[in-house]
Design a protein around this nucleic acid. Sequence first.
RNA 1: GUCUUUGUAGCUCAGCAGGAUAGAGCGUUCGCCUCCUAAGCGAAAGGCCGCCGGUUCGAAUCCGGCCAAGGACGCCA
Length: 584
Amino acid sequence: MTDPVKETADSLKALVRAALEAAAAEKGVDISALPEINIEIPADSSHGDFATNAALASARALHSSPRDIAADICARLDLSGTYFEKVETAGPGFINFFLSKDWFGAAISSVISAGARYGTTSTGGGKKILLEFVSANPTGPMHIGNARGGAIGDCLASVLEAAGYNVCREFYVNDAGNQVNKFGRSLELRYMQLNDPENAGFIASFDNDEELCQAIFSDTERFPMPDDVYLGADIIAHAKRFTEINGDKYYSADEEERRAALVNYALPLNIEGLERDLGRYRIIYDNWFRESTLHSDGSVERIIQKLKDSGYTYEQEGALWFASSRLGDDKDRVLVRANGVPTYFVPDIAYHYNKLSERGFDTAIDILGADHHGYIPRMKAAMQALGVDPERLDMVIMQMVSLIDGEGNPIKQSKRSGKAISLVTLLDEIPIDAARFFFNLREANSQFEMDLDLAIEQSSKNPVYYVQYAHARICSIIRGLKGKGIFADGNAKPVYTEPEEIELIRELSILPGTVDAAAAAYDPSKLTKYAVELASCFHKFYDKCRIMGESEDVLQSRLMLCNAVRITIENVFAMLKITCPDKM
RNA sequence: GUCUUUGUAGCUCAGCAGGAUAGAGCGUUCGCCUCCUAAGCGAAAGGCCGCCGGUUCGAAUCCGGCCAAGGACGCCA
């Protein structure tokens, strides 16, 4: 809960506010007419450490020029006993405040004493958030969009935790409904092909499953498939392994029985695969929520009844409709088809109702691909119909990713395997650190083209190494000092005078504010950008200021500064789940 | 066509609850290791912030309209 910037800004704001009100009172202006004022950190540090727009903003209310008001406020400010040593009016009417050197020393001491807690805030107040992300279909491998969603979701969860929320990471497993039926049909078709006596010779000519699957996949003449099933080679591989276990005993079995056996075999394997692959990507979920439980425990039927009771449903052409257009959606949606089967929408409503009402989360956040944005109004409408405040449901829309090479040409296949790029093949090509960093480099809601060559490249061009390098350099300094028997002195009172030191401390001190901003915007990319900025300030400091060989006071001050930077990088990378090597 | 997101440097993108001279990385050009890691630092070049209008003391930022690109508009999920 250490945040020197916020503490200083809050107390400054109160002082400025008081001065402004005194000025207003003398002019006979009602205090309630005064606008809200801001304390901000100027982009250009020659404009001070903090600045306020108080004079500009209240020009109209006070019927006076901003510069005159600024001078008036300055005259009334008593900054004795604060860290401010200089105040000036500038530009069109800004008031700029300059901190004394003491503030910077105190800031570093507070970072070090906060340690691993530095960067955490209590803004969230322990509110419970359920964050659902990836939720890839268990019918096939995860794609590149899931890779982005996974990185963003997992890091957002960490950011929210750092900001004081109580976060549950959840994966919604679509293990029921139409796509599972389709999965079963796909497996069945491949199983039948594999066990067709006419194909026995062809199949026997392969001694390697991978090649066999590829051959079957490619040979659409011999192994034709309809359009509306899953065509991936992974389906063939499942059918092949199932055949090895069970032989052809399902070849002439009842269709229902055959499909059920295939699904019961392959689906759990796929779900385990999702968990394993995401684990490799350092994503560990608190909960895997299965859609099938909503069917088996009656939630789906109950939600249909609740929606009927809400008065927002009607029957038309044999189907049950949800009048979502009365609650802000473009059009009404079908809940139960004329054939009596609910659409995917019903279990989804039941699932969100489960999160917000039955399990009592304060907020539910879904990370969704841009292709699902039309889904937002209807789900919010459903929550409203069920008496749940739709504001408690938030959606983060994630735009599509495309991969490009260093020349800007699109990449469709993995260089290594030649296959379409799935999450797994991506992780085979890119270090996990780089993947997690890159996917959080851009805001979710921006379409971005990821330069795969750059992500793979282990060089200065790659921003993740730039930050890691700063950390490794610090560790190297500390090792070097240790070798000479020099250690950090816990009682040292740090003093900083060089501009590079001051800039670095300025950057260090905005971490808590950055975490809060990232949490408020649901935007973990603010953390990667911060990490790069911090590393940049450190490298500049490193280039300009030496540590070894300096006088005792300077050495200890700079050693503390290095430690504060190390702690900060470690804390940020812990949120991103990226490693901090000691040497590179 | 309707809805939605996005147009900022050659490329990839920050900045957007209005604020001071529009930023970074990559790429290009040129400098810096007798000294804690050169995976670094510095400098230069590069911009009608898509276009037009409006609100304001002040607009890349807010509003409206155009233009362009991605996405969504199933009794698919």
